[in-house]
């Protein structure tokens, strides 16, 4: 099942981000070049936002999504990229996400001597389980495992399953968090 741009927009709406501003800033910086070109506009004035390279964040999130999303989902690259356009918006959440990705990337280098996105899928999953993200309860202020669960694994799962395509995988075209209208609840099963 193909994830679409509409799904990414819906996922952003579900978490209160639109992505428009962040995308615009990022593209402007891309044109201007320089060291900060790969970071989003949110990084200005916040050193922690620059801790993890923008490209690393995006590549790592896509690589993790390929593990935590079901096999029948296509279009993960673009979906995650567009979701991050909005999610990396200069908020405290964006900083937390970068830091959690950075710790995951560090663990990947330490344990597998390679960045997350270059690991085979099985080793990526091993990395996530090794860091404890499978059994941890999400906690934005918790241990590494709890923060990877919160900012990486669960951010991706929230994005998917609050989107129309993610909902349809389960049998609900208007999942909780998606403003899919006040008609679908009236309809019977397809």
């Amino acid at each position: 099942m193909e994830l679409t741009r509409r799904d990414a927009v819906a996922a952003l709406a579900a978490v209160g981000a639109t992505g428009g501003v962040a995308v615009g800033v990022r593209r402007m910086q891309d044109r201007e070049g320089g060291e900060d070109a790969a970071t989003d506009g949110a990084s200005a004035g916040d050193p922690s936002d620059r801790d993890t390279n923008e490209g690393t964040v995006r590549a790592t999130m896509v690589a993790v999504a390929e593990v935590v999303y079901p096999g029948e989902v296509d279009g993960i690259d673009e979906f995650v990229d567009r979701f991050l356009d909005g999610r990396l918006d200069g908020s405290a959440h964006a900083s937390g996400l970068r830091e959690a990705v950075g710790e995951l990337a560090d663990a990947s280098q330490a344990w597998h001597d390679a960045p997350v996105e270059e690991l085979p899928a099985a080793e990526r999953e091993e990395l996530l389980r090794g860091i404890g993200a499978d059994t941890a309860d999400e906690d934005p202020d918790g241990t590494t495992a709890e923060r990877v669960r919160y900012y990486v694994v669960n951010d991706l799962l929230l994005a998917l399953y609050a989107s129309p395509t993610g909902g349809e995988l389960v049998g609900i075209e208007n999942p909780q968090g998606h403003p899919g209208g006040a008609e679908s609840y009236q309809r019977g099963p397809p």
């Binding site: 935590v68 079901p70 999953e125 669960n154 998917l160 995988l169 389960v170 968090g177």
Partner: peptide, 22 residues
């Protein structure tokens, strides 16, 4: 249960998670 909330708890992801949600 709401599938979204179910998805954020549990020890599974990928295909096993989808199966649990279904």
């Amino acid at each position: 249960p709401s599938p979204v909330e179910m998805a954020l708890s549990g020890d599974d992801w990928g295909d096993p998670l989808l199966e649990r949600l279904r």
